[in-house]
Design a protein around this nucleic acid. Structure first.
Lengths: 143, 143
DNA sequence: TATTGTTATACTCTATAACTATA
DNA sequence: TATAGTTATAGAGTATAACAATA
């Protein structure tokens, strides 16, 4: 068993992860939402209700742009706004039941696609991925 | 050893792969190229010289848009155009030495970032990723 | 006459600047 | 006076339509 870190492994892992990620993204349903709208919706789903400015910051977008993004999402009933409890200037945005359903359907779609691909692997290979998943998860969230 | 395919594994793998891919993308150098320009450059690098229409198709972009993208890349000396050998209407685009260098530097950057993260894993975990890499590669390229 | 690529023009998305309201 | 969000306007980027050159 070797312990020194192999730059070729990093490079290979980078390539395969980015390619697979790209293909997973391609499996998204065409729901007429822009990439920014989907991203904002997913962030609200992941982080819970956020004021507009905070959401804009997380999405690396300016507040006026986020105003338009949330307006589009609100018009489609995917997010809802609630006033801030103590600060009347702030507006909190959160995902509606429909918004959550849209995201869930989308994830489901990609899961099915990936599941079908993985079904072609032999049991030993599946087992390796089972062990690899939590490690990749840590790499993705660390620091 | 189980052989039935586990949807939870697919879901977990999807999440970790997409997140890690997202973070890898964030490591890109800020070279003032747009995402479309980088993508087109990388495609030419991967696939070799292509006529404009073909490149537009692979990037899911219309020919007029690709005309502008290649014009920007050409102006920065990252791609070059050569006439088609037999068909005078077609224009073949290919990556220049500078273009290849820019891509290589960019990949290097991400490799270093990933390598540093992976160095924190213990040898057993590194070994699992070593075995997982070619499997992910196959998933990414299959069908 | 059909096809490849470019130019002209319109639309979408995001940013900066100016404004309204609340603290 | 400072901050959160919106509205007005301008700047990228992409698309459709019309055009030029070649097959």
């Amino acid at each position: 068993m070797r312990t020194t870190l192999d730059p070729v492994l990093a490079s290979r892992l980078r390539m395969s992860v980015m390619r697979l990620g790209r293909r997973l993204r391609q499996q998204r349903a065409d729901d007429n939402l822009t990439a920014s709208q989907i991203a904002a919706l997913a962030t609200l789903d992941r982080e819970g209700a956020l004021p507009l400015g905070e959401l804009a910051a997380r999405e690396h977008v300016r507040p006026p742009s986020m105003t338009r993004i949330t307006a589009a999402l609100e018009e489609r009933g995917l997010v809802a706004r609630t006033p801030h409890a103590t600060d009347g200037r702030q507006v909190l945005f959160s995902v509606t039941r429909e918004g959550a359903k849209l995201l869930a359907d989308d994830r489901k779609r990609r899961d099915v696609w990936l599941c079908e691909l993985m079904a072609r692997l032999d049991p030993g290979e599946q087992e390796i991925l089972r062990q690899a998943a939590p490690i990749l998860e840590r790499l993705a969230t660390e620091r």
